[in-house]
Amino acid sequence: MTTFIRNAWYVAAWSKEIGRSLFKRRILGEPIVLYRKEDGTAAALVDRCAHKLLPLSMGRLVGDHVQCGYHGLEFDCSGKCVKVPGQDRIPPGAMVRSFPVVERYNAIWIWMGEPEKADPALVHQVLRHGEPGWAVIDSQYQYHRTNYLNIAENLQDPAHTTYAHRSTIGNPAASEVPVKVEQHGNQVVSWRWTNNAPPPPIDVKFGGFQGLTDRCQYYNYFAPCVSRVDVCTLDAGQEHTEENMDRGHRAFSYKFLTPETEGTTHFFWMHVRNYAVGDDALEASLIEGMTRTFEEDNVICGAIQQEQDATGLRQIAFLAIDAGPSRVRRMLEQMAAAEATPQEPQAAGTQRAKVNA
């Protein structure tokens, strides 16, 4: 059974990637071509001509129409064929699927499911984006060689940071601190505070912390495709209120997961912070450090994917630290099963330990 959830908004591309040329990207197994119309708004069609199936991205834009590069058929942004060179009659089957798109937070979001359910109000809200005193890093992208469920589990797993990210966000003092897990509808949060402990290297480097600190990590996962990690470091001994956290060293780290195939994922990330606003040198260092951190995850999850493919298993032993990751996977699998067609029967509960990629 597929693990894809179609009735949701996914990031298809960063705004700067889409212009007056044809941009192709595979999303949820579908080839998509994106472009901007002459008025600047974005459009998306299935990247497959209705005639001989040539990718439309191999053609060109003619005004607001996509012209196939094989026989010159032209399609408007609704997917309707509006021109067939050499004949007046346009066959009724000469049309391609179009997809709803919304531009928000410097990103193009696409709805791959039922068009009538594509409510722009459902696009995920990015906290503090554009607010005074908060800086934003966006337009960041990586290509991850694993099923998005493995990434979702990784992003809901504070325990791995001590070992997988020793030179960046890892904090040995946190390794023995238990993680608490809560679920609220289609949101799972795994969280912990590490109190009266030395700060990790990233906070020493960017926050200037010298003494003991209190540091929280709130790993939020919003089904099906958004992770928000709320990280805050305070000098030890302060009350853990929202007001004190905003006065501390705080950042919201967003990852938007867009499945390409059952074994590969488009990984878009954004970072919103309340410190060193306007410091270009620090921002460049943050980008370098986070890019390295997420690439460390890419290597690990890619290696896991290879072994899952080889064995047909997801994992063998289950640990207490799997509570959050397993809950996220179960939530996503249940949502995918609910969307399954009659040809894709719902998976039995006994398949939880099997690979779904």
Rank of each mutant, 00 (worst) to 15 (best):
F4H: 15
F4C: 03
W9G: 06
K16L: 02
E17V: 03
L22R: 01
R25A: 11
R26V: 12
G29F: 06
E30M: 06
E30L: 08
V33T: 00
L34Y: 05
A42P: 05
A43H: 05
L45V: 09
D47Y: 04
R48A: 09
H51E: 02
K52H: 11
P55R: 13
V62S: 13
G63F: 03
D64Q: 07
D64S: 05
C68Q: 05
C68Y: 04
H71Q: 05
C77A: 09
C81S: 05
V82N: 04
K83E: 00
V84T: 04
G86W: 06
R89N: 11
P92R: 15
A94I: 01
M95F: 11
V96K: 04
R97Y: 10
F99Y: 09
R104C: 11
I110C: 11
E116C: 10
D119H: 14
V123Y: 03
H124T: 12
V126L: 10
L127T: 15
G130I: 00
P132S: 01
W134F: 09
I137G: 01
D138L: 01
Q140G: 01
Q142C: 00
Y143H: 13
H144D: 10
H144P: 01
R145M: 06
R145W: 08
N147V: 14
N154G: 11
Q156D: 07
D157H: 10
P158Y: 13
A159C: 12
T161V: 07
T161K: 10
T161S: 05
Y163C: 02
R166A: 09
G170H: 11
N171A: 09
P172M: 05
P172I: 00
P172Q: 05
P178F: 11
V189C: 15
T194G: 05
N195W: 10
N196Y: 10
P200N: 15
V204Y: 06
G211T: 10
C216F: 04
N220G: 13
A223D: 12
A223I: 04
P224F: 03
V226A: 08
V226M: 06
S227T: 15
D230S: 12
V231E: 14
V231A: 12
C232L: 07
Q238S: 10
E239F: 00
E239P: 05
T241K: 08
E243A: 11
E243L: 07
N244T: 03
K255E: 14
F256V: 11
P259N: 03
P259H: 05
P259D: 01
E260K: 13
E262M: 11
E262G: 08
H266E: 00
H266R: 01
F268Y: 14
H271C: 06
V272F: 09
Y275L: 03
G278R: 14
D280H: 06
A281W: 02
M290P: 00
G302W: 10
I304H: 14
Q305M: 05
A310S: 12
A310R: 09
T311Y: 08
T311C: 00
L313N: 15
I316Y: 09
P325Y: 04
P325I: 02
S326F: 05
R327A: 12
V328L: 09
M331W: 15
M335V: 01
M335G: 06
M335E: 04
M335F: 08
A340T: 04
A348W: 14
A348K: 15
N356E: 08
A357W: 11
